[in-house]
Amino acid sequence: MGRILDEHLIYEVLSVVEEIPAGKVATYGQIARLIGRDKNARLVGRVMSMAEYYGSYPCHRVVNHAGRLVPGWKEQRALLEAENVPMKNENHVNIKACQWAD
């Protein structure tokens, strides 16, 4: 994965994440499409897991295609609720109500 995941790609992903407005969410796949890598949603997830080493980005606004929150990241829900993101249940945002239109 070292060859695929270079700093240019990392910053490309993070620049898209930085554009997600408060109160909206984007999916890993949506971000992958925006950077021209339609099939690389998992690669976007990998970048998200390392984002803290590259600065401060609103990674809490990135969820999976069904709106599921990151397992084990309890703060994500609180951060999204503080931005008035509607929740579908304990572990999912209401993706239809808050997905960022790219």
Rank of each mutant, 00 (worst) to 15 (best):
N40E: 15
N84V: 13
R77W: 03
L79G: 00
C98G: 10
G29V: 11
V17G: 05
S49I: 06
N89Y: 11
L69C: 03
W100I: 08
L80F: 05
C98M: 10
R61H: 06
R61C: 04
R77T: 03
K24I: 14
R33A: 08
E83P: 14
Y11L: 13
E52G: 02
P71A: 10
N64S: 02
A22K: 08
N94A: 14
Y11C: 03
Q99Y: 11
L34C: 02
Y53T: 03
Q30W: 11
V93M: 09
P58E: 00
V47D: 06
S49Q: 11
L9N: 02
R37Y: 14
N94V: 06
G67E: 06
D102I: 10
A82M: 03
G45Y: 11
R42N: 12
L79K: 07
M87R: 07
V13M: 03
V63F: 00
R77A: 04
E81G: 04
G29A: 15
V16N: 00
L80M: 04
Y54G: 06
A66N: 07
N40W: 11
H92N: 08
A22M: 10
Y57E: 04
R3N: 14
G55V: 07
R37F: 10
V85H: 13
G45L: 13
V85T: 13
V44E: 08
